[in-house]
Amino acid sequence: MTRLLLLATGDTMAFHPRPGRGAFASGAELLAALPAGSVPAEVTVEDLLAVPSWDLDPETMLRLARRARTAVLDDGYDGVVITHGTDTLEETAYLTDLLAGAAVERAGIVYTGAMRPPTELSADGPRNLRSALVAAGDPALRGVGVVACLNDELHAARWVTKIDATGVAAFSSAPYPVLGRVVDAGVEMLAPPPPRPPAPTGEPESAVALIKTYPGIDGVLLHAVVDAGARGVVLEGTGLANVPIGLLTAIDELTGWDIPVVVSSRARFREVSPEGSYGGGTLAARVGAIGARGLAPVKARAALMVALGDGGVRTARDWFGRLDGGV
């Protein structure tokens, strides 16, 4: 029989205040709430933590990623499901994808969550959990990479974004396609997955800052985060990864100090790179900024964490250079 591991982290799917019993249902309780026989697999449950995803720290995200990998490579599970709050699900899922290595060739690794707690009418948690378990055990997900399963849709971790803070159809991969969907007791694939990322080397660097740029931003902010301990900086630019000219001196100085600066964009495009644009992004590249290869800002931060595992600017530039642009 298929063996699955369910890693539970609390949050909305499990939020169920009960006098004397804590605010979050355990993973075993979530599993027991599903209809008998709805998951044709043997499921083992591990409760890793019970905190809201908006309060996760990088070390906890890395812990989840490592446990998912070892569950497959060391413990031999056929699939892993991680319940996770939806606020930062996309970041942790992509970090797991970057670190999964050979694990995604052997098993499905699926993140899921809920927009409504169990106490609300038409709670979406049970359906999402059941669909995620079905997907994780389906051989169709082997080699696909880490996915997010919500509302019966399967989204690539590299593409998925939360676009709605309240509705159950809260996640989208646009402008990229939904990878597949859960139908009955299996997975129907609808599109090819994104290319696999470069293999990680060394231990990821958790001290990476993400700064949203805006008209009039002062370069002193970049110096401030480095002074506070950041080993890398991601800038969320505009349009074609453009950043204000007032940041160029700071980017040049940080690069000279072996602090990589990666430039992404708040816009959604198939490919956004400062090396290929014609405005502030091009100027930033000329003073040392690294293009995010179309990654959304929060995904670029996860990627820089991994890219910094074995060096500084040169290593990060090489890693992003090997990241396939077909994102």
Score class of each variant (00 low, 15 high):
251 I>P: 10
214 Y>R: 07
175 P>G: 08
221 L>C: 00
42 E>C: 10
308 L>C: 04
185 A>S: 12
20 G>I: 04
76 G>R: 13
77 Y>P: 12
276 G>M: 09
202 G>V: 01
241 A>E: 02
279 G>M: 07
130 R>Y: 11
78 D>V: 12
45 V>R: 11
36 A>I: 00
161 T>V: 13
277 S>V: 01
79 G>W: 04
54 W>Q: 13
301 R>W: 09
178 V>M: 04
83 T>F: 00
156 A>F: 02
105 E>L: 12
212 K>Y: 09
291 G>H: 03
177 P>V: 10
212 K>E: 15
32 A>W: 02
147 V>K: 08
212 K>R: 15
208 V>A: 15
116 R>K: 15
246 G>N: 12
45 V>I: 02
181 R>I: 03
25 A>S: 07
179 L>I: 07
148 A>E: 03
268 R>L: 08
98 L>P: 01
238 T>V: 11
142 R>E: 08
272 V>M: 11
180 G>I: 11
176 Y>P: 01
283 L>I: 05
7 L>E: 05
319 W>H: 05
203 E>C: 02
195 P>N: 09
294 G>F: 02
184 D>I: 07
222 L>P: 06
102 A>N: 07
89 L>W: 04
62 L>P: 01
9 T>H: 00
4 L>T: 05
89 L>M: 15
124 D>F: 05
160 V>H: 11
75 D>Q: 14
29 E>K: 00
226 V>F: 04
317 R>A: 15
52 P>E: 12
210 L>A: 09
41 A>E: 14
212 K>T: 11
80 V>N: 10
51 V>W: 00
109 I>L: 13
314 R>I: 05
125 G>K: 07
